[in-house]
Design a binder for these strands. Structure first.
Length: 504
RNA sequence: GGCGCUAUCGUCUAAUGGUUAGGACAAGUGGUUUUCAUCCACUAAAUCGGAGUUCGAUUCUCCGUAGCGCUACCA
């Protein structure tokens, strides 16, 4: 239905810092969706030019999280079956620390063309300069001190650095004029060059800064669309200028709005979870997370809300992306999640639930698969996230603890509850174990209630309470049948006995 | 301080130069029900402020306000 753009190549370019920020994930998702929507190529590039922030093993970790979320990249890095990572693609290497030669080459070319220059300024001088400028309420910018030096001075500084074994940094020379960026989401934004700083593009450790690396890499990796967070909008004119200085055709840009805390500040750890892993650990399903995150800033312009990855790929359009930041609403996430939980079979769910049961202290090996599935079937429509399973289902695995008062139905008395439970105990004792199915139990108990002319609640409430020890739970017939399946009829009689005991 | 972006129910958002401004989540009410959940019905809830353009603006323009982003040899 939509027109496809040929040969789209997008990249997700995270720094290996050890966790996957949900905002970053959204960027990765959109970038991937756009590529796949156009039958294009989705690439992973690692931006590890800041050696101080590098975290060991974080790429494998990132890959694992992304894979769990259903996203795999066509080029860049992928996880092998043994869990180690490997590179693929013709335009690599896909890690910036392995491309250093390229950056120095183009930094040199820029210097040669007069679009960049060496800067010998010390950190101290830069610091003082900034302080002075801010004190005077002027925008802190480099004063081109090294650009304006005489050639003798430059030679002197170069010699000094050489004997000291130091490298000068390279700064990009912002020309005069103005630059307009044509953002696919934000439209045209024009910047006056005089507000742009002469950015360092090559650091003294020989590594490029983001600004040079991103341009060189996007160019050689033949990226067509740069999809990134909107914090990059202000540096986009600099990138455009570097493209121009190098004589390259720039990519297209699409900046994405931020994901926010409930107070509208940038999503941060202090106000909740920011890492995709945090959400996964809490028992949000990957499909739900993908669906939810996609709707933060994008919508299909229809009333459909539940989208699989494939459906997102089919319907995703950059033009439908919003410009305002979006607050992450846990309520909505829970709703999306519960709707995905309901679509899963009990069998699938059991596998996902086992770690949470174990964390809760349930010795899961003692119980049969059948039983776990039956329990799951009862709970799945009540579950907002997987991590709730433990406390919701404790009573299926051991005698529950509860206050005696729980046994009394609100319209009745403890004495009455005791009578009903005693009669119920007799009734169930006399019932063959094979009759402990939901349907048969319902028939038997309802018949008993009718015969005695009791209120439903006066019988069913104490029964349910005695079995579950919970104020809220699934209905008594299904709980009773399920319990019988896993723990046997005798366990039910025992629990009724304990309840009667408590009421005595 | 400078530059930039953004602004519709509490939240995610739809729509239009003329509508009862729509949907979803959350909230509330009622029904079903032994409880919870489900389900059904219903209720409340929004165009940041001020000018201008226009017969008419929430929509277009400007100003203001607020929020956010950027302003590093971080990305």
């Amino acid at each position: 239905m939509n027109e496809k753009i040929p040969n789209v190549r997008t990249r997700f370019a995270p720094s290996p810092t050890g966790f996957v920020h949900i905002g970053n994930f959204r960027t990765a998702l959109f970038s991937h969706l756009w590529a796949k929507h156009n039958n294009g190529t989705s690439i992973l590039r690692i931006e590890d030019t800041d050696q101080n922030r590098k975290v060991e093993g974080s790429i494998e970790y990132l890959l694992r999280v992304m894979k769990q979320m259903g996203i795999e990249f066509d080029e860049g890095y992928y996880l092998k079956n043994d869990g180690s990572m490997a590179e693929r693609g013709q335009l690599g290497p896909y890690m910036q620390s392995k491309r250093l030669g390229l950056y120095t080459k183009y930094a040199a070319e820029l210097i040669e063309k007069g679009s960049a220059y060496y800067c010998y300024c010390s950190e101290q001088r830069l610091d003082d300069l900034r302080k002075e400028q801010t004190a005077l309420k002027k925008p802190p910018m480099y004063d081109r001190h090294c650009y304006n030096m005489s050639s003798e001075e430059k030679e002197k500084m170069a010699a000094e650095f050489k004997t000291a074994g130091k490298n000068p940094v390279v700064r990009f020379l912002i020309p005069e004029g103005q630059t307009t960026i044509h953002d696919l989401i934000y439209g045209d934004i024009t910047y006056e060059h005089k507000t742009l700083d002469d950015q360092v593009i090559l650091k003294s450790d020989g590594f490029p800064t983001y600004h040079l690396a991103v341009v060189v890499d996007d160019h050689f990796m033949e990226i067509t669309h740069v999809i990134r967070g909107d914090e990059w909008i202000p540096s986009t004119p600099k990138h455009l200028l570097i493209y121009k200085a190098l004589g390259w055709e720039p990519t297209q840009f699409a900046h994405l709005p931020l994901i926010l805390n409930p107070d509208k500040s940038k999503l941060s750890k202090r106000q909740g979870d920011v890492a995709v892993e945090d959400y996964l650990d809490k028992g949000y399903l990957p499909e739900a997370l993908v669906n939810f995150v996609a709707f933060l800033g994008w919508n299909p312009k229809t009333e459909k809300e539940i989208f699989s990855l494939q459906e997102l790929i089919a319907d995703f359009e950059l033009t439908n992306v919003n410009r305002a930041g979006a607050v992450l609403d846990i309520n909505k996430l829970e709703w999306v999640n519960s709707s995905y939980i309901r679509t899963k079979s009990a069998k699938e769910l059991v596998d996902l639930l086992i770690p949470y049961w174990e964390k809760f202290g349930v010795e899961i090996k003692k119980f049969k698969q059948d039983y776990l599935e039956a329990v799951t079937e009862l709970e799945k429509e009540r579950l907002k996230k997987l991590s709730e399973i433990g406390e919701r289902t404790g009573y299926y695995f051991k005698q529950p603890e509860y206050e005696t008062s729980l046994l009394t139905w609100k319209k009745s008395t403890p004495e009455d509850a005791k009578v009903k439970l005693t009669e119920l105990s007799e009734l169930l004792s006399g019932l063959d174990e094979s009759k402990f199915t939901k349907a048969d139990l319902e028939i038997a108990i309802k018949e008993f209630i009718a015969q005695k002319n009791y209120d439903n609640g006066s019988v069913l409430w104490p029964l349910r309470a005695a079995l579950t020890g919970q104020e809220k739970s699934p209905g008594p017939f299904e709980v009773c049948a399920t319990l019988a399946l896993g723990l046997g009829k005798q366990e039910i009689i025992n629990r009724l006995g304990i309840a009667i005991q408590k009421l005595t």
